[in-house]
Amino acid sequence: MTKFDWTQLINPEFYITLSIGGFEIGLFIVLFIVFAETGLFAGFFLPGDSLLFLAGIYSRDLIQNVVYIPGDFINVFLLSTAVAIMGVLGNMTGYWFGAKSGYYLFKKEDTFWFKKKYLLQSKDFFEKYGGKAIIYARFLPIFRTFAPIIAGIVSMDKKKFMFFNILSSFLWSFILIFAGHYLYGVFLKQGIDLKHHIEYIIIIIVIISTFPVLLKLLKKKPVEKI
């Protein structure tokens, strides 16, 4: 029996290939993580973007371990749609949570699962971009988790929120999953199996997705006076 390593919890491939009693549960884990990252404020540490990109690479396995569906495109389309729906439901949960407990969150002390600074940064981000923040945040770690909560706190119009919620969720899931699936095919034709280079893929995606966040934080850093 392979010894469990806690570092696997931040490795997207671990969730995708997870099985219990010989039954592959990767699809259900992916869907739950998407919901948790966007619907539960404790989900900000979960591997969102890299998880979806790798889900695109493993799309056929994820779908056909649950139900056999012929046709490559259909498998990717169904996976992307399922992920998008979970993203919509996650944001709806976050919005509801923010509307019901906004005051409590701003008074809450920091814990391992909750960092108020992320909430405040997301609030600034939301005030700067308005409804578009829901779309931008979907592609940014941390902000992706807190944007719907902030929308609920500031009582954003529900119809407007749902429009940006649905649009952003489908853009996020379809772009990343289709990119993962078809880039895998392109590289495979060149003799490169991306499944053997997962670590590098994760690092590249993490750098790309966190760069805008780091840039924003650096810009906010006060300049020391001489």
Rank of each mutant, 00 (worst) to 15 (best):
V34P: 01
Q64K: 15
V213G: 12
L214Q: 11
D5V: 01
K107R: 11
L18P: 00
G185Q: 13
I135F: 10
S122D: 04
F106G: 10
I149E: 01
T38D: 05
K128H: 09
F4G: 00
I20P: 01
K107N: 13
F187A: 12
F32G: 15
L105V: 10
I69T: 15
A147N: 04
F35V: 07
S173H: 04
G39L: 02
P47K: 02
A137I: 02
F178Y: 15
Y182P: 11
E37I: 03
Y200R: 11
F44A: 02
S168M: 08
S59N: 08
W96T: 10
G39A: 04
A42M: 12
L105A: 08
Y95L: 09
T17G: 06
R144W: 04
F28V: 11
G22K: 09
V223S: 15
L52A: 06
G87D: 01
I226T: 10
L52S: 05
D193C: 11
P12R: 05
D110R: 14
Y118N: 09
F161E: 08
F41S: 05
I25T: 14
K123V: 13
R144H: 07
L214I: 12
T93V: 12
F53L: 13
G180L: 13
L52Q: 10
F164K: 05
E224G: 10
F32W: 15
F163R: 11
Y184L: 09
V206E: 11
F178L: 15
G130R: 07
Y104W: 13
F97L: 15
K225D: 10
K158M: 09
P148T: 03
D110L: 12
I201T: 08
A84S: 14
A133W: 03
I175R: 13
D61A: 15
K3N: 08
I135W: 03
V67G: 13
L78W: 07
I226S: 14
T145Y: 01
W172A: 12
I57G: 02
G90R: 00
L9N: 01
S101G: 14
K189A: 07
S155W: 09
V88L: 11
F44I: 03
F187S: 11
L171P: 03
P148S: 07
G43D: 02
H197V: 06
F32V: 14
L176P: 02
Y104K: 13
F45T: 02
F53V: 07
P141K: 00
V223P: 01
G98T: 00
I69E: 10
I198S: 01
L31I: 04
L51D: 04
L120E: 15
G98P: 02
A137W: 00
D193Q: 06
M162E: 15
F35D: 02
D5F: 02
L188G: 10
P12T: 06
Y129Q: 06
G48A: 08
A147E: 05
L89D: 04
N11D: 14
G180K: 06
L183F: 14
V186G: 10
Y200Q: 13
N165K: 08
P222C: 09
G26R: 03
K115H: 11
G90Q: 03
V76W: 02
H196V: 15
D124R: 14
I207S: 13
V34Y: 03
T7N: 08
E199P: 07
Y129T: 03
T17N: 13
T111A: 08
Q8G: 00
V88G: 04
I192S: 01
L51Y: 06
Q64S: 14
T2E: 07
A84I: 13
